[in-house]
Design a protein around this nucleic acid. Structure first.
Length: 881
RNA sequence: GCCAGAGUGCUGGAAUUGGCAGACAGGCACGGCUUAGGACCGUGUGUCGUAAGACGUGUGGGUUCGAGUCCCACCCCUGGCACCA
């Protein structure tokens, strides 16, 4: 019989499903293992082969653990709310509700179910299910009640194409332009009132915990960079002739004797204060103050004129487009405020400037500039003719004037700095911090780059933010008993671009009684960010009622035609069953793409920490282990929809079957590196499975007649078990597969050699225990990778399901080969090899004796004197002459 | 600019503590079997050389009996951050 993947895969999928072979008993599991792959958003194109990487990796790992006695829970669901789904619906001219029910069905039935995974479809989660988003809204309310959510006016990023605000995490930099991560449109900066989650409250913990979780290093690094901790000091400076103070954040207090000016961000409070002054009458102009400052100040003949200049600069800077920002490059622009701040250290009068190179939201939005040891400060000083005072001598030892960028010196020893002179800059920094704190001029602080999470979206396809605005009482959450706030059916759901969600068109829906005073009030019309849906979905899975498939419940409760629902089967007070949660969470293994490093993975950690502090769960980190898999390359480019080089896995499922596709994906490179997907190469994997099929079906009654053959075969078998076991544990799937192939090659060559007895006929009644064991082991090792073919072949040689068999165990004693090859080197170069018994290979005298008998060695050694011998037992001998 | 990782045949990639470089595949070539083959089986395949042999893991140096692996300098690629004080 020929290997027919289509037939056997359909057959076993049915059997497994019917007998519920992989069903895990959530309540009574003895060794629970929560094995998770990121859930997809169901786009209309369906899965592409890139998706197969996490699924086949997670599933191979899960099946391996299952054979090792774990109760493996491997859930799957759909992240079906959000801009990406909605944009696709717009493109297709369909309502997202209709589209989602079509696409999820296609994903689940036509694609995912063919992969032969352990996915538990009874516990499917769909974020658009009111049974689910009720709790997303509940989560929002808990955040609000615990002072982790607030509505505030703040500069936000706005995508003119998606017509909504975005969080900072949902933008990326492409060719120096900040664009929308979703549609790649350059973003705009706008000042808008939005809902924020105060993730910055957890900045320290988010950073510190990274040291204690088993995550891919590259993911942790991305999070560390994004959180962007920097330690420094806030120094307060008096503004001359006023009662104002300016606080500057610096990480380099050691250079403070070289500070010659101050620069403020355009949004800075002091700038606003300056603009309120009628004239710049407080400024002392004239000959006594212009010795150090000239050009910037020379233009300041008319005070009112100067105020206008500041005002127009600020206006321009805050509305600057991305294009303008790029065209300026590093060129420094700015304007003098007319005021001076005093450096307490040396009473130097530092002119105060406004410039957009200073970022309002970082540190204090004010910089004390030291042009001698900071390139940006130097560029600004050159532009405005501000003096530069050297305070650091670098390795080159130069002490002269600083005239060029190359002269700017950040590292080295302090000079011109009084009590810091001669100190190395790190030591000087410590001394300076102590000094400033002691004098009461400043305080050491830690700042972060992380910003609060902007959660509002002016879109339709998401959970309405469950807040009510009352003209008398202000903002109040929707009472929890009234959840969910159902997303009303709106025919024209397209984003409007007027800064409001399409929900604002539904006045009837908006109108609601204030939960506080009972008077008429209005609902919040924005929906929440998709990343809130996915920030807690892993908490939901184990607690999903398994009475019936989620798809059926969903269809019952939320048909595309229904505009509202009257009955909902909702859980009572919590989104999960606490006893189940404490048994199954945190997630044991999580596999997904690293593109979520600062998005989903950061938000999930934040939400988990917050829920822990609220007392709803008893762990702070959601994922014990996270592994970032690599990406597929196709024709030299990353496989993605935007590049149009995506490949539908169904092509290969039809042609070769799931086993081939799964194994090929895992074989093409290291799991964290991905690889190049090629048609010819996948055919190679299909050929391999065909060979395995032929070997097992044609040689079932094969007999090994020579003892040495059987002994060698067993050594190879135990070595292979060891290698495959270790490789799966460390997710080195590619090398695990290659050692299975090597093992097959050995089996195959034994099978094709002239046994049994010298070409004589096979005896079908005589069964060979060794051969049987080696073949069974081959199938067991293959089972996690290729569940179908291994099950089919197992059914001919073994009993029950192969997936219920224990994982093979290797015997240390049987890892030792009978004979080994010892390398003979002369001066470190390989000259000959000898084969001898393992025991003898460890005796130096024995090996040396044999080595010197070698003809090749003799010719190399003739007429030379041996200086010494290096002996590595069981490996090599090196003769040095 | 900063941080991190990588650089190995025609290609994807493999190589415990420094110890036979190129496992396992793909491709290609030749042969077998075939009416035929994009099926199957076998052989070969780092470079130069008829050969013995020499050279060979981005480049240049170093440590070592011995370096893909360790150290120093540089080049290049990939990813993250980026006017972050």
């Amino acid at each position: 019989m020929k290997y027919n993947p289509k037939k056997i895969e359909a057959k076993w999928a049915k059997v497994w499903d019917k007998k519920r072979v992989f069903k895990v008993d959530i309540k009574n599991a003895k060794k629970p293992f929560y094995n998770l792959a990121m859930f997809p958003y169901p786009s209309a194109e369906g899965l592409h082969v890139g998706h197969i990487i996490p699924y086949s990796g997670v599933d191979t790992y899960g099946r391996y653990l299952r054979m090792n006695g774990y109760d493996v829970f491997e859930p799957m669901g759909f992240d079906a709310f959000g801009i990406h789904s909605e944009n696709f619906a717009i493109k297709k001219g369909l309502h997202p509700k209709t589209l989602i029910s079509q696409t999820t069905r296609y994903f689940r039935e036509k694609q995912m179910k063919r992969l032969g995974t352990l996915f538990d479809w009874d516990r499917e989660v769909n974020t658009t299910d009111p049974n689910y988003y009720k709790w997303t809204q509940w989560l929002f309310i808990q955040m609000y009640k615990h002072n982790l959510a607030e509505k505030k006016k703040a500069p936000v990023t706005y995508c003119p194409s998606c017509k909504t605000v975005l969080s900072d995490e949902q933008t990326e930099v492409r060719e120096q332009v900040t664009v929308c991560e979703r549609c790649k449109t350059p973003i705009e900066r706008r000042e808008m009132e939005q809902w924020f989650f105060k993730i910055t409250k957890y900045a320290d913990k988010l950073l510190a915990n990274l040291d204690h979780i088993n995550w891919s290093e590259k993911t942790k690094r991305a999070q560390r960079n994004w959180i962007g901790k920097s330690e420094g000091i806030n120094i307060s400076y008096d503004v001359e002739n006023t009662n104002e103070k300016i606080v500057c954040f610096t990480t380099r207090p050691d250079t403070n004797f070289g500070a010659t000016f101050i620069v403020l961000a355009p949004e800075h409070e002091f700038v606003k204060w300056v603009l309120k002054q009628k004239t710049l009458s407080n400024v002392i102009l004239g000959s006594d103050s212009d010795s150090r400052i000239d050009s910037g100040q020379a233009r300041m003949t008319n005070n009112t004129e100067q105020l206008k200049e500041i005002s127009s600069y600020v206006k321009k800077a805050t509305t600057k487009s991305e294009q303008e920002r790029i065209s300026e490059g590093r060129d420094k622009t700015g304007v003098f405020t007319g005021f001076y701040a005093i450096n307490q250290l040396n009473h130097y009068r530092m002119p105060i400037y406004v410039s957009d190179f200073v970022i309002g939201s970082f540190g204090t939005g004010a910089v004390v500039a030291v042009p001698a040891s900071d390139i940006r400060d130097f560029e600004f000083a050159k532009e405005f003719n501000i003096p530069v005072k050297r305070i650091i001598v670098g390795q080159d030892g130069k002490t002269g004037e600083i005239n060029k960028i190359e002269d700017v010196c950040e590292e080295g020893t302090l000079i011109n700095s009084e009590f810091l002179n001669g100190l190395e800059r790190h030591i000087a920094a410590k001394k300076m911090i102590d000094y400033i704190e002691q004098k009461g001029w400043g305080k050491r602080v830690t700042t972060f780059k992380l910003r609060d999470w902007c959660i509002s979206r002016q879109r339709y396809w998401g959970p309405p933010i469950p807040m009510i605005n009352c003209p008398k009482c202000g903002w109040n959450p929707v009472p929890e008993k009234d959840l969910p706030v159902l997303l009303p059916f709106i025919k024209d759901y397209k984003p409007t671009g007027d800064g409001k969600s399409p929900l604002a068109k539904n006045k009837k829906w908006m109108k609601v009684k204030c939960p506080n005073c009972g008077g008429w009030a209005e609902r919040e019309t924005d929906v929440s960010d998709t990343f809130l849906d996915s920030a807690w979905y892993f908490l939901r899975y184990p607690s999903v009622d398994s009475a019936g498939p989620a798809s059926a419940r969903l269809a019952r409760s939320y048909s595309p035609k229904a505009k509202t629902r009257t009955t909902l089967a909702l859980s009572p007070t919590l989104p999960w069953d606490p006893s189940i949660t404490s048994k199954w969470l945190p997630v044991d293994m999580y596999i997904g793409g690293n593109e979520h490093a600062v998005l989903h993975l950061m938000y999930s950690r934040f939400v988990t920490m917050a829920l822990k502090d609220m007392g709803y769960i008893d762990f702070a980190e959601p994922f014990k282990r996270f592994f970032a898999h690599g990406l597929l390359i196709s024709e030299g480019a990353k496989m993605s929809k935007s590049r149009g080089n995506v490949v539908n896995p169904n092509i290969y499922l039809d042609k070769y079957g799931a086993d081939t596709l799964r194994m090929y994906i895992l074989f093409l490179g290291p799991y964290d590196a991905g690889g190049d997907f090629r048609d010819t190469a996948i055919a190679g994997m299909y050929r391999f499975l065909n060979r395995v099929w032929t070997l097992v079906t044609d040689h079932g009654n094969f007999v090994i007649t020579e003892e040495i053959v059987s002994r060698d075969l067993l050594v190879t078998m135990h070595k292979t078990i060891k290698k495959v076991t270790e490789d799966i544990n460390s997710l080195h799937f590619n090398t695990a597969i290659s050692s299975i192939m090597e093992y097959y090659n050995v089996l195959s060559s034994v099978a094709s050699s002239p046994h049994p007895p010298a070409g004589g006929p096979k005896n079908p009644k005589f069964s060979c225990a060794e051969w049987d064991e080696t073949i069974k082991t081959l199938l067991l090792l293959l089972a996690p990778f290729a569940p179908f073919i291994s099950e089919e072949l197992w059914s001919t040689v073994g009993e029950s399901s192969i997936h219920n068999q224990p994982w093979p165990i290797y015997n240390e004693k049987l890892l030792v080969e009978e004979k080994v090859t010892i390398v003979i080197q002369i001066n470190g170069k390989v000259r000959d090899k000898i084969e001898l018994k393992t025991l003898n290979s460890k005796l130096e005298t024995e090996v040396k004796k044999l080595a010197l008998e070698s003809e090749k060695v003799k010719t190399y050694l003739s007429g030379k004197k041996m200086v010494k011998t290096i002996f590595v037992p069981g490996k090599l001998i090196n003769l040095v002459v």
